[in-house]
């Protein structure tokens, strides 16, 4: 026992604890709220420090779905994929997901160019139908996001939602709205620990409190650069625990979006016979990617497939047993 204690690291700083969702007493309407981050050790090393919060799973819900969705998603999400409100409700209540991540990709000029009012109405309906906090992602077109997201931020003032993503070339507009309306923000950097920190400094400089920032370190799925993401997260965490408060933010990892982009998760049995059942292959690709990110220190995983969510949720529960 004494020898084991000698090997334990002691860290000087803990990761900022971020509150997701606000109940009626705090000016919001969420029945369920969460905390993420707050840990003072690497993942699951309970003897080295506190790990007050478990990693959360957010179910990815899209406002529109591409026609070429992989078979694994098509078969199991067919009933809801055209109805984002129902999709969100179902995922939040049945799949075991902790919260919902709504991606408004239909706003993109190339993917439908939906008007602002549609997006606002959708967000309002989703919030009414779920009890959990909501993550709201823009479409990736800077101009459109800067138009829509601040409007949604204002309309949902006080709910303490999580908005994303901002990047170092475009952060001011959305960050200013989130600061004013009491929301959290996702800061995206391209698998680079320096840029992650730079963006946090920029956000902090314009008044964003450090405990309202979540880092999106950008990940790759299994076979697509997962190990780079892993090492960047490890480096950032190590710097944070050693005292760098500008890197001491929780991580969000977009697992669903990345793993269902992998060729192995998409191609049919005919095109890839040695890969086995296409549906299960896709699910496992998502599970394995998610578990690697959990080990790397993810605080929120966004995931797509209900089956994958169940498996990962149960694994996280096991890992959290001391």
């Amino acid at each position: 026992m004494a020898d084991e204690l000698k090997l334990l690291e002691k860290w000087s700083l803990k990761v900022h604890e971020v509150k997701l969702g606000a109940g009626p007493s705090a000016g919001g309407s969420r029945e369920i709220i969460f905390n993420i981050g707050g840990q003072s050790s690497f993942p699951f090393l309970f003897k080295e420090g506190d790990i007050p919060n478990r990693p959360l799973i957010a179910a990815e819900v899209l406002d529109c779905v591409e026609d070429d969705w992989p078979v694994g998603l098509r078969t199991d999400l067919a009933s809801v994929s055209k109805d984002p409100v129902e999709w969100a409700r179902k995922m939040a209540s049945d799949s075991g997901a902790d919260l919902v991540c709504l991606k408004l990709q239909g706003l993109h000029p190339d993917l439908g160019n939906k008007p602002v009012k549609d997006a606002m109405a959708l967000v309002e309906a989703v919030l009414k139908n779920i009890k959990t906090p909501l993550i709201i992602l823009g479409c990736g077109s800077a101009d459109k996001d800067n138009e829509v997201l601040p409007a949604i931020s204002e309309a949902t003032k006080g709910e303490r939602l999580l908005f994303g993503d901002v990047v170092s070339e475009n952060y001011k507009t959305l960050a200013a709205a989130c600061i004013a309306d009491g929301h959290n923000i996702i800061a995206e950097s391209p698998i680079d620990v320096n840029i992650a920190k730079q963006l946090n400094i920029l956000l902090s400089d314009i008044g964003m409190p450090l405990d309202r920032i979540v880092i999106n370190p950008t990940i790759g799925a299994l076979g697509y650069g997962l190990e780079y993401a892993y090492s960047i997260m490890e480096r950032a965490k190590s710097a944070a625990l050693a005292g760098d408060k500008m890197l001491a933010m929780p991580f969000i990892c977009f697992v669903g979006q990345e793993s269902w982009r992998a060729k192995e998760a998409k191609v049919s049995l005919n095109d890839f016979p040695q890969g086995g059942n296409a549906r299960m292959r896709g699910i496992m690709w998502e599970v394995v990617t998610a578990m690697a990110m959990v080990e790397a220190g993810a605080d929120i995983l966004t995931m797509r497939h209900p089956e994958a969510i169940k498996i990962v949720k149960s694994a996280i529960t096991d890992l959290m047993k001391r």
Binding site: K172, L202, D205, I206
Partner: peptide, 10 residues
């Protein structure tokens, strides 16, 4: 300017 060297348009 912000620390990233972007002009502060606000």
């Amino acid at each position: 300017l912000d620390k990233n060297g972007k002009i502060n348009a606000n």
